[in-house]
Computed example of a mutant assay.
Amino acid sequence: MTRLRRPGGIRRGFGGAVSVVADGTLAVVLDGAAAPRSVAVVTGLLALLAVLVSSVPEHLDTAVHEGGHALAAFLSGRRVGGVWVESDGSGLTYSFGRRRGIGLFATRAAGYVFPSLIGVCSARLLAAGKVTAVLILAVAALAALLLVMRNRFGELVVVSVGASLILAGRYAPGWVQLWYAYLLTWVLLFSGPRSVLVLHRARRRGAVGSDADKLAESTHLPALFWVLAFGAVSLWCALKGAALLLA
């Protein structure tokens, strides 16, 4: 919760709705109606372009992917040894625990669906006008991820994104917060299906050792089944998130 330094004012929000804006010690709190559809459309197109042509969303997707592995491992009682994010877009999460069971299954299954799930949760918050909540929760998640990051490039990715979120939340005007939150949410929604497609193409070229391959070993279901399952979840999240943002 943000401790307010002085009472804020009531300002006319986006789309004619009334929103409450207050200056806090840590952030400028922006809470009110969802953004107009034009903002959602423009940020969506920018995010799609970034996901297709830039490596920055790929590195963010990898960090969130590995963060999903780490969170699932922690929640299932496994010990998280560390997380690595490499400059080529690959990543690794190392955890200790039982060699079989629901904990290991959840840990292996969480990675490819986690960015999409985070994206749809963020979209739901934005649809309710909770812009600052998206930024604060993202900073908290990145701070937790930084605690288990074990390589310099991964730390650079996490610190850079986290710092930009803090600066936007503390010093930027409300419309910058809004655009940034929408852009970040779209990136997560788009990068989920894209990463599954990259996985499928890599497996067709003979790559082995992916999350789908490891799940196939432990469940005796074909790796293609898990690729399709990852794709179905990420696509559903992308469609659901888009419906929320564009409503």
Results as ranks from 00 to 15, higher is better:
residue 100 R to D: 07
residue 142 L to S: 02
residue 72 A to C: 01
residue 37 R to W: 15
residue 194 R to A: 14
residue 142 L to Y: 04
residue 231 G to Q: 00
residue 147 L to I: 09
residue 118 I to T: 10
residue 51 V to M: 11
residue 234 S to R: 04
residue 77 G to A: 12
residue 3 R to L: 15
residue 74 F to I: 08
residue 158 V to Y: 14
residue 158 V to T: 10
residue 78 R to L: 12
residue 180 Y to M: 03
residue 122 S to L: 09
residue 147 L to N: 03
residue 97 G to E: 13
residue 90 S to G: 06
residue 112 Y to T: 11
residue 70 A to G: 00
residue 64 V to H: 14
residue 113 V to A: 11
residue 20 V to W: 07
residue 54 S to N: 09
residue 129 G to N: 01
residue 32 G to M: 06
residue 151 N to S: 13
residue 105 F to C: 01
residue 180 Y to K: 11
residue 231 G to W: 12
residue 104 L to C: 14
residue 61 D to V: 04
residue 45 L to R: 13
residue 1 M to Y: 12
residue 58 E to F: 09
residue 38 S to L: 15
residue 140 A to R: 05
residue 209 G to I: 08
residue 84 W to H: 11
residue 155 E to P: 02
residue 183 L to P: 10
residue 239 L to E: 11
residue 178 L to E: 12
residue 149 M to W: 00
residue 230 F to D: 00
residue 199 L to Y: 02
residue 169 G to H: 01
residue 35 A to E: 01
residue 189 L to K: 03
residue 165 L to Q: 05
residue 73 A to R: 02
residue 188 L to T: 13
residue 111 G to R: 11
residue 25 T to E: 15
residue 70 A to Y: 09
residue 71 L to Q: 05
residue 164 S to L: 12
residue 192 G to A: 09
residue 150 R to D: 07
residue 199 L to R: 02
residue 164 S to N: 03
residue 13 G to F: 01
residue 153 F to Y: 12
residue 171 Y to I: 05
residue 209 G to E: 06
residue 40 A to M: 12
residue 171 Y to H: 15
residue 135 L to Y: 09
residue 137 L to A: 10
residue 204 R to N: 13
residue 122 S to G: 10
residue 35 A to D: 00
residue 200 H to T: 04
residue 167 L to P: 10
residue 36 P to F: 00
residue 9 G to S: 06
residue 77 G to F: 05
residue 14 F to W: 10
residue 124 R to K: 02
residue 92 L to V: 05
residue 24 G to Q: 06
residue 115 P to Y: 04
residue 11 R to T: 13
residue 159 V to Q: 12
residue 83 V to D: 11
residue 154 G to D: 06
residue 9 G to T: 01
residue 117 L to K: 10
